[in-house]
Design a protein around this nucleic acid. Structure first.
Lengths: 137, 137
DNA sequence: CTCTATGCAAAATATTTGCAAGGGA
DNA sequence: TCCCTTGCAAATATTTTGCATAGAG
């Protein structure tokens, strides 16, 4: 299971466009962080992204990774997957989908959802900002 | 929105039975912690439960609350609701249901789910241990 | 040139662990 | 009695923040 080159390209294009729209400087660090996330299907944690990006940017700080992931999340460029008793995981796949958290090894898998799961845009009279459907297996 | 006396009683009965079945001593602390959780519909955090239980058990420690909530969760007496950027919340309602997290004030509400959401017992060939459906509004 | 991002270190949060003493079964 | 639990304190883990400097637009 890998992200196709076309999909990766689309994610990077969207990233750059959203950065421009929001006047967010496209620093090499931001690009490296997002690029790694966008190419991943392992739902990496901030620490894992940091470890990988550090290979190129030996001086990068974990705080920078956190700061940028937070910004990306707010801008809707990725979603934050909270894990009970563990670090948040991040996912650059924007289409509505679920996750299966394997409690035996901590791996997080994407799940396609049946059509019925396409959520109503309103819950309790409020616009839904984000939906998380997680199966623990 | 409150837990009905019947429901509370049922939850306490189930708690006591599960404790006996698992040879878990029913200490006053455990009873107080579970009782408060079972009577709550606010999905309290460990800290909130600690604050309340401390009114009766002035010496209780936050670690004890965490230890017991963890045990309750493992035994299926409650579920742990992870909140991005915040402490876990706990819920003694065992029926499959969703949650609406109000991002404006941090309140967590229960949501009834349409029948379609009753999940298949298998995901990726594995038994589903727990399902979390959370709307962020 | 201006403004934000970065890197570092320290702080803030959240949760877990080790251990001696106490108390349920 | 035996073992699990409790309470305390310290350790861990995770994430955020303050600030001086660097670098993108």
């Amino acid at each position: 299971m890998t992200v196709t080159p076309q999909e990766l390209k689309a994610r990077m294009e969207n990233f750059k466009q959203v950065c421009r729209q929001n006047k967010l400087p496209q620093t090499p660090q931001k690009l490296a962080i997002f690029q790694h996330l966008a190419a991943s299907c392992t739902h990496p944690s901030a620490q894992e992204i940091y470890d990988r990006v550090k290979e190129k940017f030996t001086n990068i700080s974990l705080a920078t990774v956190y700061k940028n992931l937070k910004k990306f999340t707010v801008l809707g460029l990725c979603i934050e997957i909270p894990i009970p008793g563990g670090a948040n995981r991040y996912d650059a796949k924007l289409e509505i989908h679920g996750h299966a958290v394997d409690t035996a090894n901590g791996l997080v898998h994407d799940l396609e959802l049946p059509k019925e799961y396409n959520y109503s845009a309103q819950v309790m009279g409020r616009q839904v900002k984000q939906i998380h459907l997680t199966y623990y297996i």
